[in-house]
């Protein structure tokens, strides 16, 4: 089994942690993993992505256009930006909630999330839109969008991992006091 996964969003949304959880879960199942992510200045509110590949005989963690089996979009605009990487039969999980850049608030050049989601719906046959507002309200925390999306990705089968693999990864990588909240987010279904 070879899988190529892209996580994308805006710096600060928790893509890096989500990517590490997937890596850790896969490695615990002895699946070789290669990944690469954005660290540094771009993390401060810029567009960020993680490329993650699992399986045998891989050289590069970077994913080519049209090669991703799964894109997890933490933000509708960022999902559109990464769409060229999605394989023709690839799956996409995307959060419905836009994060407006500061420049948009300054000059009234904001964009509409609906337009992005419509565009994705017209191009991606296997698309799951996660209603972020409802999900965050249900788990009672504004800061766990990453685990909510990860749970949705797991349930659609595109990670090739089981729910318990991710829970174990949470136990390994996240401080204990946040476990309950993160499990709630992982298990959230609308």
């Amino acid at each position: 089994m070879r899988k190529s996964i892209i996580l994308c969003g805006v710096g600060g949304q928790g893509t890096v942690l989500a990517s590490r959880l997937i890596s850790s879960a896969a490695m615990a199942r002895r699946i070789p993993v290669l990944s690469a992510e954005t660290i540094g200045m771009a993390q401060r509110g810029g567009s960020v992505f993680s490329h993650l590949r699992m399986g045998e005989d891989l050289y590069s963690p970077m994913i080519a256009r049209g090669e991703a089996d799964l894109i997890i979009g933490f933000e509708p605009g960022e999902a559109v930006r990464q769409l060229p990487f999605l394989a023709p039969e690839g799956q996409m999980i995307v959060s419905s909630r836009p994060v407006m850049p500061v420049t948009a608030a300054l000059s009234d050049t904001g964009y509409r999330a609906e337009e992005m989601l419509d565009y994705l719906a017209s191009r991606v046959s296997r698309l799951t839109v996660v209603d972020a507002e409802a999900a965050l309200a249900a788990v009672r925390s504004p800061k766990v969008l990453n685990l909510i999306l990860l749970g949705a990705a797991q349930r659609c089968g595109a990670l090739g991992l089981e729910a318990k693999d991710l829970k174990e990864a949470v136990r390994r990588l996240i401080p204990e006091k946040f476990h309950a909240l993160n499990f709630r987010a992982l298990e959230y279904t609308p």
């Binding site: 509110g45 810029g46 769409l83 850049p101 337009e115």
Partner: peptide, 10 residues
């Protein structure tokens, strides 16, 4: 694609 937001780091 529809015009995408520019996101300089802030």
């Amino acid at each position: 694609p529809p015009p995408l937001p520019v996101r300089p780091p802030v």
